[in-house]
Computed example of a mutant assay.
Amino acid sequence: MKQQTRTHDKRQHLIRTAADLVYRNGFLKTTLADISAEAGIPLGSIYYYFQAREDIARAVVERRVTELNDFLEKQADQPSPRLRLEALVHVWVDERESDTVFGCPVGSLCYELAKGRGPMSTEAARPFQLLLVWCETQFRQMGCSRDAKTLALHLISALQGISLIANALGESERILREAAYLKRWLREVESRTKRPNGAS
């Protein structure tokens, strides 16, 4: 049991290290040797856990999906779907400085893995599929059943787009402006659902 625990802990340490390096340097520029050096684990030992770089990519995507799931599940305590969606927007506010330097940790990874529709493109789609379905559910609960898919797509597109723009321009203030706009937009969407002839 202790050996299994040590093996699990070492694997998780490698995945955390890989996720951080991939975020800062990009997947294509991150090698197993880089992960070995940063994690303080001999390169030969890494091959015990990951046979190829694609295995690292899958593990990092799985980590991002798990992190997203954990965050989204915690939002169930929020008293309304609008507040749950605003909490998602606020993630971009909290992480605006790192996003400005490195881009969105989810968006930049998924873009890189999906580029050219290579073998990792299916894995790359998973975080976005999770976010879109969750946002769509919130909009449906808000009373926007007819337009829920479109509204969810708009929100995620806006958040990913502002990360890209802030990163390209090196201006974290852009994220603050967009986040403030999106919160106003969410309140407007919610208010329309409460009118007699509002969205349904």
Rank of each mutant, 00 (worst) to 15 (best):
Gly170Val: 01
Ala57Lys: 06
Thr150Tyr: 10
Gly44Ile: 04
Ser172Asp: 04
Glu73Ser: 14
Ala180Glu: 15
Ala180Met: 05
Ala39His: 10
Leu159Gln: 11
Arg64Ile: 01
Lys74Arg: 15
Glu95Asn: 11
Val101Gly: 01
Phe102Leu: 05
Leu32Thr: 05
Glu123Tyr: 14
Leu28Gln: 15
Arg187Ala: 14
Ile162Trp: 00
Val106Leu: 14
Val60Ile: 09
Ala76Gln: 10
Ala87Met: 02
Leu83Thr: 09
Ala52Tyr: 11
Ile165Thr: 14
Glu73Thr: 12
Tyr49Asn: 14
Gln129Trp: 03
Arg184Asn: 08
Ala57His: 04
Thr150Ser: 13
Ala33Gln: 13
Glu136Trp: 00
Glu173Val: 02
Ile56Phe: 03
Phe139His: 03
Arg146Ala: 13
Leu169Asp: 10
Ile35Leu: 11
Tyr49Cys: 07
Ser191Ile: 02
Asp147Ser: 12
Pro81Glu: 11
His154Leu: 11
Tyr48Met: 06
Leu164His: 09
Gln78Tyr: 06
Gly26Glu: 05
Gln160Thr: 07
Ala87Lys: 02
Leu169Val: 08
Arg195Cys: 12
Glu190Gly: 02
Ser191Ala: 15
Asp9Glu: 15
Gln129Ala: 08
Ala37Tyr: 06
Ala59His: 01
Gly26Leu: 02
Cys110Asp: 03
Ser145Gly: 11
Glu112Asp: 03
Asp55Glu: 13
Lys115Leu: 12
Arg53Ile: 11
Thr150Trp: 11
Ala152Asp: 04
Thr66Pro: 00
Val93Arg: 08
Ser121Leu: 03
Ala76His: 06
Leu131Thr: 08
Met120Gly: 00
Arg126Thr: 12
Thr17Ile: 03
Thr30His: 09
Ala52Ile: 07
Lys29Val: 00
Leu32His: 07
Gly170Gln: 04
Asp77Phe: 06
Lys149Arg: 14
Leu132Thr: 06
Glu38Ile: 01
Thr100Ala: 05
Leu176Arg: 09
Pro81Leu: 06
Ala166Phe: 08
Glu188Gly: 04
Val133Arg: 12
Ala19Cys: 10
Arg140Cys: 12
Leu176Asn: 10
Glu188Pro: 00
Thr150Asp: 13
Glu123Ile: 02
Phe139Met: 06
Ala39Lys: 05
Cys110Asn: 08
Lys194Arg: 15
Leu151Asp: 06
Gly198Glu: 10
Gly40His: 11
Leu109Asp: 00
Asp94Thr: 07
Ala59Met: 02
